[in-house]
Design a protein around this nucleic acid. Sequence first.
DNA 1: AGTGAAAGATTTCAGGC
DNA 2: GCCTGAAATCTTTCACT
Lengths: 171, 171
Amino acid sequence: MMPIRHNTIDTKPEDVPDLPSEKAQLDWVDKVILQSLIRDARLPRAELARRVGMSPPAVGERLRRLEETGVILGYHAQINPARLGFGLTIMIRAQPDTGQMADMIAAIEATPQIVRCERISDKNSLVAWAHVRSVAEMEQLTDRLMPHGKVDVSIVQSTPVEPRPLPLEKD
Amino acid sequence: MMPIRHNTIDTKPEDVPDLPSEKAQLDWVDKVILQSLIRDARLPRAELARRVGMSPPAVGERLRRLEETGVILGYHAQINPARLGFGLTIMIRAQPDTGQMADMIAAIEATPQIVRCERISDKNSLVAWAHVRSVAEMEQLTDRLMPHGKVDVSIVQSTPVEPRPLPLEKD
DNA sequence: AGTGAAAGATTTCAGGC
DNA sequence: GCCTGAAATCTTTCACT
């Protein structure tokens, strides 16, 4: 199982070194680089260098540090599931039975159509998103989760706000 | 307001040209290119060319077509919100009052902390995700949505499955 | 659709401040 | 931490199949 990334800042004593959940000190240059790569991850370093008025090697060094300190987690192509034959997107709300949380998460992880899953505070449940090819595939998928708890499925009708970048303060 | 992308294959007569929701026919080469760029969007064309045993111009041409036909929607750097000071991730479940759907969507769109939103079939409601700096900011955010309907907030505790690629059949 | 070659741009690396 | 400059690599264009 993959390590689970937590979504809040964990409290910690002052003397331990940087944790990935710590707030990073970013200057204006870092923020321009980040915003640019959030919008277009394939931008050349040379272009980033022009935007911030620095040399390409300097930008390369900044990038390396942003990646190593966990500010940048990766670069991903965003694809259109419908164009790959996955015509149906669903949201799954799963409430594991007592003692079934780990098994439910394992089952979710083992289901390749599920492309992300978050654990939320409300009723200690999980919310997962999946792309499937048909209603039959949707049914098959939920059948695999149901042994571990209550499972609810909703159809995603549209995406009023596509994944978009966080606002970064000017500085 | 941005055009809304629908998440299902729309039915259409056979004679109209390609729609973005149509299934594209991809060969093995396209799939290797896609999988590679989903994992690392910054891979050079030359490297992709080596992986598929083709020349760089051929890969460039493939890429151009995948982008133009809407199979690839974009390339984005994935960042760690906690490291940018947004220590709290929340899920918002919004059920617009009668006649308030458009206004609710507009309010969601106008809220920069909300990084994505999907409309689901269950109770005709919206599910949105936001990164905020504090509980106070969370409250402020929900106050802006509440005039348009019922609003429910849950805290995201962890992410058992990080955004990951869809499985592409071997061919 | 794809190739190969040439011109132009980018990345990497060394050395210096 | 950033710069320059040279060498290696990558991208783009184009003539050709």
